[in-house]
Write a protein that binds this DNA or RNA. Structure first.
Lengths: 202, 202
DNA sequence: CAGCTTCTGTAGCGATCGCTGCGGAAGTTG
DNA sequence: CAACTTCCGCAGCGATCGCTACAGAAGCTG
């Protein structure tokens, strides 16, 4: 049911699944996983409930697809940042990307991966765990990158890459909360700059 | 209906409102505002729906009472921290209190004021705004305290108290997210210590 | 065209949401 | 004791939740 698995036979889909995902992402981003009802979602996607379930399975699977899209879209700055040549460049790119993405005009403020399901009812536990794993994956990638920086002599040998990655992600999560609370881009950027002036700090 | 306004006439309340509030706080803390259904709440409080509505008005008013209780209870470390003699002592007490409160065993992890309503459906907007104001109030208190520290010569005169308060709260929010994600107390404390070794940083 | 597969609009499923009317039970006052 | 006030368990309100059965419409293949 997910996609045309038996070829191109039959009536083709009457909507752009990619654009529907984009609009669903904005709704989840703003209202969170449980705060986004199927009615609001399908209305924003411009399709009927039936079409949404035929194309994506159910609400949780739709959210998983949205999270993939978010990772490769608004949150892609993380993967790009890890390829920067030095740890300072990595940290700079991560904080700059966090501020930019969490305060983009005409987009929901904050980070979808942080605020979509920090707390849930019992029925949302799986999505909550999914996002915990998502955030933890980001942390692990940064940690490994900093470990490499230590190995290459880019960071002092006594540096704890895990603690440094924890420091950076903690700061990024905090920025996401501030942005979701309405704090402006300029103020957050000034703060991030100040943090980077004291790199690596730990 | 809130309390016995006409004196002590009539049948007295059959439960301890204070303990009921405490239990409601734990439920909101763990599941968030919208994730905590009235059924779960009243079940945890050990009272019927009718009793809850008679004593507290409705779910939103119950949450407001819970937030007050949280401010004066688990989050009271903030008010105490502001009375510390120096800005460094203030920052140390705030971060230590944040780590302790967000990772207390047998309590929900994270901060109720951060994670209860970062995102909501339309019907939860007021509570979301309430928590934005709650966090902003904390920020303002810290800012004023740092302004005093500048005036007293405790902090360098070129220090921006607002930016420094933003830095500290950002870090505290990040700790709350990490704690809600399951990161342990020891690791967060080590990180907070490292941050404080470079005070004031900004 | 016929025959087939797939999409989609309507309508509604059972469950749960926050909340309330009602009447008897329980504790107060005289 | 009687009279009164308040509490509370039961039952259920209308609305919404995520989700689906059904049937006709639409586009594909021969």
């Amino acid at each position: 049911m997910e996609k045309q698995q038996s070829g191109l036979i039959g009536r083709p889909r009457g909507f752009d699944a990619d654009e529907a995902l984009e609009r669903a992402m904005l709704v989840f981003w703003e209202h969170g996983y449980e705060g986004a009802s199927t009615a609001i979602l399908t209305n924003a996607m411009g399709i009927s409930t039936t079409s949404m379930y035929a194309a994506f399975g159910n609400k949780e699977k739709l959210f998983r697809r949205v999270l993939e899209r978010y990772t490769e879209g608004p949150s892609a700055y993380l993967a790009r940042a890890l390829e920067e040549p030095t740890a300072l460049h990595v940290a700079t790119a991560i904080l700059a990307g966090t501020v930019r993405t969490t305060t983009r005009p005409a987009h929901p403020h904050g980070c979808l991966g942080v605020q979509s399901a920090l707390t849930t009812s019992d029925s949302g536990q799986e999505v909550r765990d999914l996002l915990v794993a998502w955030r933890n994956n980001g942390y692990c990638c940064i940690q490994e990158r900093f470990q490499r920086a230590v190995d290459e002599g880019d960071l002092p040998p006594q540096t704890d890459p895990g603690l440094l990655a924890r420091y950076l992600t903690t700061f990024a999560y905090g920025i996401a909360v501030q942005a979701a609370s309405g704090v402006g881009r300029d103020e957050l950027r000034k703060m991030a700059d100040a943090v980077l002036r004291n790199w690596p700090l730990i």
